[in-house]
Amino acid sequence: MEAHDDPGVLGTFAQGRGVPGTGPSAGSLAAVSSGAQGSSSHVRVEAWHREEARRLRRAECQGLPDELLSRRRPGLTLVDAYRVQWCGVALRVGEGARVLGHKVGLTSAAMQQQIGVDEPDSGVLLDYMEVADGGVLRAAGLLSPRVEGEFAFRLGADLCGADVSEEDVRAAMPAVCLALEVIDSRFDLQGIRLVDSVADNAACARFVLGSSVPMPAWDLGGERLTLSVGTSEVAAGEGRDILGGPCRSVAWLARRLDAFGTGLQAGDAVLAGAVHASIPLPRGATVSVSSPRLPPVSLRTE
């Protein structure tokens, strides 16, 4: 099978932020553990990484679910799954998309139990995924969209390293906002594993960022987020439900990216993860998330 060290395939991210291929370690990928710590090793880009990325892109464009990657490729590693993910992002960048930041997924116990995994994952945010606050999301073409309420940040400074802490995150974040994320797997969800989610860009489909406020002195872990459809509250959770707090979630992301030889950069948008289990995205409705001390955010579906 064709294989080679390829700074080019991920180097197409050069216009983006915090993605392997943009820094001195382009063409290599570190070994990944659940804590994103430990020794690193070079991983070669193989033809099947690209082919699986193209296959997922076709599923997204055609609106047809694909067979789980983990079933077709038993023994698939997490490193390989991230390589497929980033090759997929490279395809989209080649089509004209821009990298806006990152998302952390599967951060709460509720989400992990819903999907059947025991650790978080991460994905890349692209410009075509963003919906304006209060804007319309046309669900045609999405397979089985679900929606989540989250905290989000815009970095004011670079954030990288194997020992990034919650305090480092707070220092790098000038502001915080509420966000909605619409997830939509390109796979049949029955029997899905962590590697499938990672390869599928952590199921990221669309996102909405609310109005930002200066980073507060009070603990975001105690802020309760409520997801509503119309006037009905349908889900809720607190900041501490995501890895102990949204800043801890971002610290986890920075450490994981460091294991790949990259990190978060000033200007990146970061979704910190859902505080509750996702719910099916309703058609013809207004979906919003609110909290006691942060401005609400909403979208309308068609």
Results as ranks from 00 to 15, higher is better:
122 S>G: 02
101 G>Y: 13
157 A>C: 07
95 E>G: 13
136 V>D: 04
90 A>F: 09
169 V>S: 07
132 A>R: 14
100 L>E: 01
78 L>Y: 08
165 S>N: 04
182 V>S: 05
179 A>G: 11
165 S>M: 08
118 D>E: 13
99 V>T: 08
113 Q>I: 00
182 V>H: 08
70 S>M: 00
94 G>H: 09
185 S>P: 05
113 Q>R: 15
173 M>R: 06
165 S>K: 14
152 A>D: 01
73 R>H: 13
99 V>G: 04
71 R>Q: 03
96 G>K: 09
99 V>N: 05
168 D>K: 12
121 D>V: 07
95 E>W: 10
165 S>T: 15
112 Q>M: 14
164 V>D: 10
181 E>H: 10
77 T>K: 08
174 P>S: 05
134 G>C: 02
132 A>D: 12
114 Q>M: 04
79 V>Y: 01
105 G>W: 00
157 A>S: 14
125 L>Y: 09
73 R>N: 02
150 E>C: 02
94 G>T: 04
161 G>C: 05
75 G>N: 02
120 P>K: 09
160 C>E: 12
90 A>E: 03
105 G>Q: 01
168 D>W: 12
164 V>T: 10
131 V>S: 03
183 I>H: 10
93 V>P: 01
147 V>I: 14
86 W>F: 12
137 L>D: 07
162 A>T: 12
183 I>N: 00
168 D>T: 09
84 V>C: 01
144 S>L: 07
178 L>N: 05
132 A>M: 04
118 D>P: 03
110 A>M: 08
181 E>T: 09
153 F>Y: 14
162 A>Q: 13
109 A>H: 13
172 A>Y: 07
127 D>M: 07
167 E>N: 12
180 L>S: 06
180 L>E: 06
177 C>S: 14
